[in-house]
Nucleic acid binder design. Structure first.
Length: 424
DNA sequence: TCTGGGGTCCTAGGACCC
DNA sequence: TCTGGGGTCCTAGGACCC
């Protein structure tokens, strides 16, 4: 049987690279992008990585470093990043129909060309994305997905590969696996790497030749598959159909702490609207909604409560979900605490056409059919005119708790009034 | 009172990913 | 003052069934 050839297209420092498209003056300068609420650093340029600033570092903890090295800081601008991501995927589609969009900045593809042509082919893809979009990517090529990850990891560190590394000449693989730490392997996180080190397994090569059954007993079949994949045995295939989400969550920390139930209600209503939108986008309804509310986890006297309720009938419309969510919120809200975060979690999700009909009353119309059309209309308007153009009254006009985003770049590509001005 | 082999469904918790 | 948000998969154990 012919082996599949996989390639991983992995954008370099993606959010930073997106910001640089429109700010070419920031090339080779230290740049970082912050998480929601301008909380943590979640994307770093190579210059910032070289300064030793770790992923997830709280922004407020490093003012001196930022000043000293003149690091350019951006709030996250997800509509921009999502748009750039889509454009990159469009380019990939020109090269192959076999694409799995793995995350906002990564995609797997399979190649059906001779193995000695793959590196050159991927260099072309890389060049096309760099020219067409302006985002640098690194491409790893191998017989398994796990090994493409290893390849791209090495190629990102060693500039000599010019962004493309193939592990298809498998007799040479060990020399590459030898320089990859076990914690850098896909599927090996902090807990497992600690255990692996204690077992004397320190590199990807060590893991490749380790006792598979011992690995399996500690790391379950997933760890077992990882070992096989390091041995060029394909266990994880290309997943082209985005599967429907079984859980949908929407939550956000408030921009400031609050004691006000009214303010929290508004924030929760926004989360419910987001979650319901995601639910309808995959043509599903939900049967269970849970709401959580917490005080600041970094302060003493933590209060954190979450309550789930089963809905009387499966729904997907924002109004019904908001009504139940606020009922739950009132149950868990205790006066006198200062709250920091709320959110909603939808489970028991199933496709709309899968909803059981009422056996006793054949004339019963499922609730979602009544609300479906109007919600579709609202989603359409909001897609075209921007989020929350049409919104439920509970969201309100002003949101006192909206997140801090003090350093956000314009939405160059998705908003007419924020388009880049080429020349004035 | 002790004795058996299967099976399903659900939940909680632990690990991982980006 | 200031510490992200959203997911997945797997296993073990309990409840229940025949």
């Amino acid at each position: 049987m012919k082996k599949n050839i996989y390639a991983l297209i992995d954008c370099d420092n993606f959010y930073v690279s997106c910001e640089r498209i429109f700010r070419p003056d920031l090339k080779n300068k230290p740049v970082a992008v912050l998480s929601n609420n301008d909380g943590c650093i979640i994307s770093r340029s190579n210059e910032v990585k070289a300064l030793g600033i770790q992923m997830g570092t709280p922004y407020f903890k490093i003012p001196e470093l930022i000043k000293e090295h003149n690091i350019q800081i951006f709030s996250s601008n997800y509509s921009l990043y999502a748009d750039i991501s889509n454009r990159i995927n469009k380019i990939l589609e020109q090269y192959t129909p076999n694409i799995e969009i793995y995350s906002i900045d990564e995609a797997f593809i399979t190649l059906s060309i001779p193995k000695d042509k793959c590196t050159q082919y991927c260099k072309e893809i890389r060049e096309k994305i760099l020219q067409g979009i302006g985002v640098p990517v690194t491409i790893g090529i191998a017989y398994t997905k796990t090994l493409t990850k290893v390849a791209s990891k090495i190629a990102k560190k060693q500039k000599g590969y010019k962004g493309v590394l193939s592990l298809l000449d498998t007799e040479n693989n060990d020399k590459y696996l030898d320089i990859v730490e076990v914690e850098d392997i896909w599927g090996v996180g902090r807990q497992y790497s600690k255990w692996l080190h204690s077992m004397g397994i320190h590199t990807a090569k060590d893991l490749k030749y380790s006792d598979r059954n011992k690995i399996r007993s500690k790391m379950t079949v997933q760890g077992y598959r990882t070992v096989l994949e390091l041995n060029n045995v394909e266990c994880i295939s290309l997943d082209q159909i985005p599967s429907i989400k079984k859980n949908i969550c929407s939550s956000k920390a408030f921009g400031k702490r609050t004691k006000s139930l009214e303010e929290i209600k508004k924030s929760l209503a926004i989360d419910v609207a987001r979650a319901a939108e995601k639910l309808r986008k995959q043509n599903c309804v939900t049967g269970i909604i849970s709401v959580f509310l917490t005080t600041d986890p970094f302060k003493p006297n933590l209060y954190s409560k979450s309550v789930a309720i089963k809905l009387p009938f499966p729904v997907s419309d924002t109004a019904t979900l908001t009504k139940f969510a606020i009922q739950v919120l009132k149950k868990i809200f205790i006066k006198s605490f200062e709250y920091k975060k709320t959110g909603v979690f939808l489970t028991d999700i199933r496709p709309i056409d899968n909803v059981q009909l009422d056996l006793i009353n054949p004339y019963f119309i499922p609730h979602h059919e009544k609300t479906d059309k109007i919600m579709r209309a609202i989603d359409g308007i909001n897609r075209e005119w921007g989020r929350d153009t049409v919104r439920s009254a509970s969201i309100g006009i002003d949101n006192e708790l909206k997140m801090r985003q003090e350093r956000k770049s314009p939405r160059y590509t998705t908003k007419w009034d924020e388009l880049l001005v080429a020349k004035v």
